Amino acid sequence: MLVKDRITAEAENLTASERKLAAAVLSDYPYAGLVSIQDLAAHAEVSAPSISRFVNKIGLAGYQEFQRALIAELKEGQRSPAEIHTGNRHVEGGYLGDFIARASAQMAVSSAAITEAQFGRICALLMDPKREIHILGGRVSDSIAFHLSFHLRQMRKGVYHLPANIETWPEYILRMKQDDVLFAVDFRRYQPSLLRLCEAAQAQKARVVLMTDKWLSPIARHAAEVLPVPIESGTLWDTYTPALAVIEAIATKIAEDNFDQTRARIKAWDAVRLTDEDRST
């Protein structure tokens, strides 16, 4: 169990000082727990013995074990496909059916990891006409980001998918205004350039919305909203199926909640869209 899940599971049993400590740890997770016990005590304004009792309450033997668990989570977030592959996976029935069953199970988990309230807040942010929307993913996960940006561009103006070339990013960073949105998709083997982009966006007072995995991209430290989706498939490749399902749910809700505007935008889009015949002339 992840440390943050241990904390959540014990939330109702925590004392007032322990709740303060939990808030301090989760506000900068997992990095807040990687400092000395004295530094964490000073930051959370609790005593070192209170931290020891808190760590025991969430099922860990002591502060060293607490830190070892956090470090293990950080390492898990950096594992490559070569490290994930075990080579002895048991397949139930045919390979295709087994794979789809695993992906379907992870999709079911994703609906529990994201509350309806958070889902609604993010949809509202992305459809707010006062905000410009900037979207980008990592080396592989940008395919998920592109899926969102393509649909949003057909619903509203002011949506920008940042190109992969980081030399062009300053133009987009300088364009960002206070409360504009940067939607970032970053799964394990997190991309340092994306982290720097989100830091720059936050400095511009843009709101960062992050889609990531359960180990949490470092971008989470700068995000106003974090969408954690399961990615483990039990194979050497992580699965993006749950992430795509969440993206499609976001796009569909926005379109249906603003159908008149969406319909007008799509009609205008289609009226000026180049066809294959147009491009060949």
Rank of each mutant, 00 (worst) to 15 (best):
F187M: 05
G138E: 06
V185H: 01
K157G: 15
F150L: 11
R189P: 01
Y160I: 02
F150M: 10
W169E: 02
K157A: 15
Y172N: 00
P192W: 08
H147W: 04
P163Y: 10
F146T: 10
Q191Y: 12
R121T: 09
K157W: 01
E171L: 08
L162M: 11
W169N: 05
S193P: 00
V185W: 04
I173T: 09
L136K: 08
K157T: 15
C123S: 11
I122H: 04
L125M: 12
L195H: 11
L194K: 00
H147G: 14
P163T: 12
M127S: 15
I135Y: 02
K157R: 12
H134K: 00
H134A: 07
Q178M: 12
K130N: 13
S143P: 02
M176F: 06
A184K: 00
I135R: 01
L136A: 11
Q178K: 15
W169D: 02
M155S: 10
G138P: 09
V140Y: 12
S193W: 08
P170A: 01
L148N: 07
D142H: 14
I133M: 11
V181K: 01
I173L: 12
I144N: 13
G138F: 08
A145M: 06
I144A: 14
L136H: 09
P163W: 09
R175C: 08
L148H: 07
F146P: 08
C123R: 00
L194W: 02
M127Q: 14
Y172A: 00
L136S: 10
D142M: 04
L126K: 04
L152A: 05
T168I: 01
R121W: 07
S193N: 11
Y190C: 06
S141G: 12
W169S: 02
E132Q: 13
L174T: 00
D180Y: 03
V159G: 04
I166F: 12
D142K: 10
T168R: 06
S149G: 15
V185L: 05
L126A: 07
L148P: 10
R121M: 10
A164T: 07
P129D: 13
L182H: 02
S193C: 00
A164D: 11
D186F: 03
S141K: 03
L148I: 05
I135A: 04
R156V: 02
Y160C: 05
Q191D: 12
I144E: 13
G138T: 03
G137L: 10
F183V: 01
F187Y: 15
R156P: 10
E132H: 13
E171C: 03
D128I: 04
V159P: 06
L136E: 06
W169L: 05
R139E: 15
